[in-house]
């Protein structure tokens, strides 16, 4: 398989720190901010951003976990093979600024599902989106507010984010060329 690295562990760390800064800047602090990670790699990313914000702003941000399985629009295509994960947002999101966190922004369909899921849970003041990698190829009118790295890709390529908490080993972002 043809694989090349586009982000090292150090670059991932810097990108997260920058996104943490930007979230504070954009919202004039983080008093009302809740970070919601999308299962699976969005959750450790949200935790890391929260830790970075803690260091920068000196205040704690609430974090939550969101599973979008029950909001997917591709059940007919992909089947019910995905195991449902637990959604756990420990605060009332109504009136809050929600920052959705995911690893890769691609077609935008996951984010569409996440927006529907959040709407069912309450009425946030604002919803923003933070991603580690934006690889383009949107199929819906969705864009990210905070991006770790913009990576132009071909549709035949695959972007794989590896995070220590999920995958073990060093953090990395890889591009693999059409394996099939």
């Amino acid at each position: 398989m043809n694989e090349r690295q586009i982000m090292t562990a150090d670059e991932v760390r810097r990108a997260i720190a920058r996104v943490a800064h930007e979230i504070g800047e954009r919202n004039g602090g983080v008093q009302n901010v809740v970070l919601v990670g999308i299962y699976r790699r969005g959750i450790p990313l949200a935790k890391r951003i929260a830790t970075a914000i803690q260091q920068i702003e000196g205040s704690t941000v609430a974090i939550g976990a969101l599973d979008i399985t029950l909001y997917r629009d591709d059940l007919e295509i992909r089947g019910a093979s995905t195991q449902i994960q637990h959604t756990n947002i420990p605060v009332d999101i109504t009136g809050k600024i929600i920052v959705l966190v995911d690893d890769v922004l691609y077609t935008g369909r996951t984010i569409r599902a996440a927006l529907d899921a959040l709407t069912d849970l309450g009425r946030p003041d604002r919803i923003q989106l933070a991603v580690l990698v934006d690889r383009g190829h949107r199929e819906l009118p969705i864009r990210a507010d905070f991006v770790g790295k913009n990576v132009p890709t071909a549709a035949s390529e695959d972007v794989a984010v590896r995070l220590n908490e999920v995958d073990g080993g060093d953090d990395a972002v890889m591009i693999t060329r059409g394996a099939v």
């Binding site: 399985t69 029950l70 909001y71 997917r72 449902i84 637990h86 959604t87 069912d120 849970l121």
Partner: peptide
């Protein structure tokens, strides 16, 4: 395990998801 996640949905103020 799936039922545990479904129970969270049932506990919401609007207990409905669109999947089916």
């Amino acid at each position: 395990d799936a039922a545990t996640s479904m129970k969270e949905v049932l506990g919401r103020s609007v207990p409905q998801v669109p999947i089916l």
